[in-house]
């Protein structure tokens, strides 16, 4: 199973942060797992990452969050430095069944895939198959 250096989880629900972190750990995808509880915090973290010299390779992005939602994060993402956009690939993770959401996710050029919650080892493995 392919592994990456580090993963960022953007999620407001602490229970889901717990689940995603565990599943990613158990799948062997990455040992470095960071979480940010809001889109704004995540954007801040990524901007700082450039000066820190350390950026995540994969971002698991929730859609429905208070304040900025996943799609608004994506809009802001396009304004981030080139380095961030080149290095970080995004996977959207959500409990939504709204086809409008699914379509928006799938048609966004930065989104690698849409995964319906809950995240599982199998779904992670399928990402890289």
């Amino acid at each position: 199973m392919k592994s990456v250096d580090s993963v960022l989880i953007v999620e407001d629900n602490p229970i889901d942060i717990f689940i995603n972190t565990r599943v990613i750990q158990q799948s062997g995808l990455s040992e470095e797992i960071i979480s940010q509880p809001s889109a704004k915090d995540a954007l801040h973290y990524l901007t700082e990452g450039v000066s820190r010299g350390f950026l995540p390779n994969l971002i698991f992005l929730d859609i429905r969050m208070p304040d900025l939602d996943g799609f608004e994060f994506l809009e802001a993402f396009t304004e981030l430095p080139l380095q961030v956009r080149q290095q970080c690939r995004i996977v959207m993770l959500s409990s939504t069944i709204d086809p409008v959401d699914l379509e928006k996710a799938r048609s966004n050029p930065f989104v690698l895939a849409f995964i319906p919650k809950p995240l599982t080892r199998e779904k992670i493995e399928e990402l890289f198959s």
Binding site: N13, I15, D16, I19, N20, R22, V23, R64, S95, T96, I97, P116, K117, P118, L119, T120
Partner: peptide
């Protein structure tokens, strides 16, 4: 659905 998917995730764990 959101709490349900959380519970499903926890059951998997």
């Amino acid at each position: 659905r959101s709490p349900l998917t959380s519970v499903l995730g926890l059951l998997n764990l």
